[in-house]
Design a protein around this nucleic acid. Structure first.
Lengths: 278, 278
DNA sequence: CGTTCGGCTCAGAAAATCTGAGCCGAGGCT
DNA sequence: AGCCTCGGCTCAGATTTTCTGAGCCGAACG
C-alpha cells in the first residue's frame, strides 16, 4: 500500500539514450564517445536506469560489458525509437534552415581542406558550416556530412615533405633531425615518408604538433621540414607559402573520406554539396 | 568560417518532449500538466528550442498559442517518435517486473476504493501498486491503468450522507449547518444531495476537507454529517464506522472510471486486474 | 610480469531544469 | 466602461541532473 515517494516519473530520456548507445555499440566507452561525454557519465546513467527499474540490463564482464537477455530483448525497440527521434530532429533542422549543410570534421580538415573549397559553393548559394567534432563517432545526428581521414578508399592523401621557400633556395636542405617538424598522427607519418625517400630509420627530432594548421604555419615560417598529407598542404603550396623540395611522395594508407550521415533527399542541399566536393 | 562554440549538441530531448506535448495538446498549460511541471518550465523549453533552431514553432496568440505551419508539419513525426519511446519503456518495465500493475489514481480513491479490493488480487498473485498523480492527464506513461472520477459512464457513484453511529442513536440527527462536514469537489456535493433530501438551499457550514479519507475519518469520529460518494464510504459502512442515517441517495452525475492507459496484451497482469475490478 | 583495456567510484563542478510570484494583454461579462 | 479570467511571459533563485577528473581494480594480452 505504501504509496511511494511524491513524484512518480518516467525514466530519464538521457539515461535511455545511454542504454541504447551502449547496447548498440557494445560498450560504455564507445557509447560515451558517441554521446560526447566521459565513460563515467555513461556508467552513472546505466546505474540510475538499472536501479530505477530494478533490473540488470548489462552483465559486467571482466573486460567490457554485455547485454543481458532482457537488455538484448528490449534494445531494438529503443534503437528504432531513437532513430525516429533523430530523423524527426534532422527533418526539423533541415526545414528550419534549408540550404544549410553541416559537415562534421576536425579543425584541421575544416581549415586546410574544406575552407578553401567553400567560397565556390557559397557563390552557388549553399551555406556550408563545418562542425568540429572529436571523431566520426561523435558526429551522430549533429551534421549532414562527415569528413575524416580514414584507412581505405577516398580522396588520396599521400605524404609529402614541405618547407618554406626560403629554406630551399639554391640547394635541397639536408634532412636535419632537429629541423624535422612532426605532425602527430597518420597524416604526418615521417617514418613512411622517410623510407620512400631512401632515408629509412630517419628519426625526426623537431617539435611535435597536434595541429596540422599550426605545423604548416611553422613550416611556412621556416622552422623546418614537415611531412604532411598533400591535400592538407595544397592551399599553402598553391600560394607559394611552402614548397615541396624533394618531390617524394609516399602512400600513407589513409585517405580523406566524405560521406553522408543520413539519407540525403535527392537534390537536397547536402546532396549537392557532397557531389560538388567529391 | 567561424567554427562555432566548442560543443555542437543535439537539441535536448526534454525540450523536444515539451514541444510535442504542447503541439499535441494545443497549449503550454495542458502540456505542463501532462509533463508534471509548471507552465513556466514549458515556456522556457520552447524558448530554448526555438532559439536553438532559429525558428518559430508556435505563434503566440493573445490567448494561448498555435503551431506555426512549420511546427504543424513536423509535429506528427515527433508524436510518433515519442509514442515509440513510451511503448519501448512500457515494454521494458513490464518485462522488468512482470505481474506488477500500476494504477494511476488519487490518494483518496487509492485509499478508500482501491485499497480494500487489493487483498483479493494479491492473493491471486497480482502485485498492484497505486501511483498517486494529480489527474488523468499526468498519468501518461507512468502507469498501466487509470482510476478517476469523471462525468459519464462507469462505476456508479451516487451521493449519500454518513455520520458516526453514535451521532444517530435513537433519532435522526437534525441537519445542522455547523455540523455539515464538507468534502470539496463533485464527490461531496451537498447541494445536489440536499435537494434530493428535500432540503433545497441547505448551506453547509462545517469544516471543508480536500481529502475524502480525512473527511470520512472526521465523520466516523462524530464530527458531523458528511455527504460523500457511496463507493468511497463503502468500506467504512461495512465496518460500521459510519452509518447512512437518512437513506437518501442522489445522483452526482459523476462516476468512477477505470481504464487502460495503453494496449494491454491479452492475458497480461494488467488486463486481469482491469477485468477483476470492473 | 608489466601493460593495456574498460568499467567503477567519489567528490566536486557545471549545467539543465523547475518553481513561485508577479506582469501583461485580450476577451467575456455585467 | 470596468472587472475578471485566461494563458503566456519574465526573472531570480533553488533544486536536480548530469558531467568531469583522477584514481582504483581486475582480467587479458604479449
Amino acid at each position: 500500500m505504501a504509496v511511494q515517494p511524491p513524484r512518480p516519473k518516467l525514466p530519464p530520456l538521457t539515461a535511455l539514450r545511454a542504454f541504447e548507445a551502449a547496447g548498440r555499440l557494445g560498450g560504455f566507452t564507445p557509447a560515451a564517445r558517441e554521446l560526447g561525454v566521459t565513460p563515467g557519465a555513461v556508467t552513472a546513467h546505466l546505474k540510475t536506469l538499472e536501479s530505477a527499474l530494478g533490473v540488470q540490463l548489462f552483465e559486467r564482464r571482466h573486460k567490457g560489458v554485455a547485454l543481458t537477455e532482457l537488455g538484448a530483448r528490449v534494445l531494438p525497440d529503443f534503437t528504432r525509437a531513437f532513430r525516429q527521434i533523430d530523423a524527426a530532429v534532422q527533418r526539423l533542422e533541415t526545414e528550419a534552415a534549408p540550404g544549410l549543410v553541416r559537415i562534421a570534421t576536425t579543425q584541421d580538415l575544416a581549415q586546410l581542406w574544406l575552407s578553401p573549397r567553400l567560397p565556390r559553393l557559397r557563390r552557388a548559394g549553399l551555406q556550408v558550416v563545418p562542425v568540429p567534432v572529436d571523431g566520426p563517432e561523435a558526429a551522430r545526428g549533429i551534421a549532414d556530412l562527415a569528413l575524416f581521414a580514414r584507412e581505405g578508399e577516398g580522396i588520396a592523401a599521400p605524404l609529402i615533405a614541405v618547407a618554406a621557400p626560403g629554406l630551399v633556395e639554391a640547394q635541397l636542405p639536408a634532412l636535419d633531425p632537429a629541423e624535422a617538424l612532426v605532425l602527430a598522427g597518420p597524416l604526418g607519418d615521417w617514418e613512411v615518408w622517410a623510407k620512400a625517400a631512401g632515408h629509412a630509420g630517419f628519426q625526426p627530432r623537431g617539435p611535435v604538433h597536434g595541429s596540422a594548421a599550426l605545423a604548416l604555419e611553422e613550416a611556412a615560417n621556416g622552422a623546418g621540414v614537415l611531412v604532411i598529407a598533400r591535400p592538407l598542404a595544397e592551399a599553402a603550396l598553391g600560394q607559394g607559402r611552402v614548397v615541396d623540395p624533394y618531390g617524394v611522395t609516399a602512400d600513407s594508407g589513409v585517405s580523406l573520406a566524405l560521406w553522408p550521415l543520413r539519407d540525403l533527399p535527392e537534390g537536397s542541399a547536402a546532396a549537392t554539396v557532397l557531389a560538388a566536393l567529391l
